[in-house]
């Protein structure tokens, strides 16, 4: 599939469907983006598992670090890879050894490996690349609108008050902006050498 843009419904189904998320490359340093994405997703009710061999023995928000995906020892719905594009493939290879397989492999904002994505998709796994699940959750629930961000969704229902541990509704009316001319052009510009 095309990974330059995603339909809102594709992202919405993933975020509504998964319960457990293993975050590969999670950092215990509280000013790193992986730390605050982990914390946000935990606060929104996801069952978060930090994976980082460098921090085994420590915990992230009371969740013990595990050294590898294999060591989680129970089925996981989604793997969120917080690594550079060049480190994606080994993680995907490891994920493909899991039984049962994860349903989703998500690569963070800035990370993209089309070959790894193809491999995962061939095994029936859904793939998202170069996106942040915190941003997408905040956008589809419109929580991110506090920052002046275009959620590209509408709703005439009373807004919920976001509180810790609460799942927000992601089922707002989509403006279909995932495929706006602008974001298509952005993706294209990035891929065109200048």
């Amino acid at each position: 599939m095309n990974h330059d843009t995603y339909a809102d419904n594709y992202i919405r189904e993933i975020l509504n469907g998964v319960k457990s998320i293993a975050m590969v490359g999670a950092s215990p340093v509280n000013v790193r983006p992986s730390y605050f994405a982990f914390k946000y997703l935990a606060q929104r009710g996801y069952d978060m598992i930090p994976v980082n061999p460098g921090h085994v023995g420590k915990s992230l928000l009371d969740k013990p670090f595990v050294g590898s995906l294999r060591e989680i020892g129970r089925p996981i719905d989604m793997i969120d890879i917080f690594r550079n594009s060049s480190h994606i493939m080994p993680v995907v290879d490891e994920a493909l050894q899991l039984m049962p397989l994860p349903k989703v492999i998500w690569m963070q904002l800035g990370a993209r490996d089309d070959a790894a994505a193809e491999k995962a998709e061939a095994a029936g796994i859904k793939v998202v690349m170069n996106r942040c699940p915190k941003i997408e959750y905040g956008r589809l629930s419109s929580e991110i609108s506090w920052m002046g961000v275009n959620s590209r969704t509408l709703s005439s229902k009373r807004a919920p008050m976001p509180t810790q541990g609460m799942r927000l509704s992601l089922n707002r009316m989509s403006v279909g902006g995932g495929e706006t001319t602008a974001s298509d052009r952005a993706a294209k510009n990035k891929n065109d050498p200048t």
Partner: peptide, 20 residues
């Protein structure tokens, strides 16, 4: 399915939602 609301709909609705 994703709808594509028109400009006038966005002019009235985008960003706004009944107060929590």
């Amino acid at each position: 399915t994703d709808r594509l609301p028109g400009f006038s709909t966005l002019a009235v609705h985008a960003g706004a939602q009944p107060d929590p």
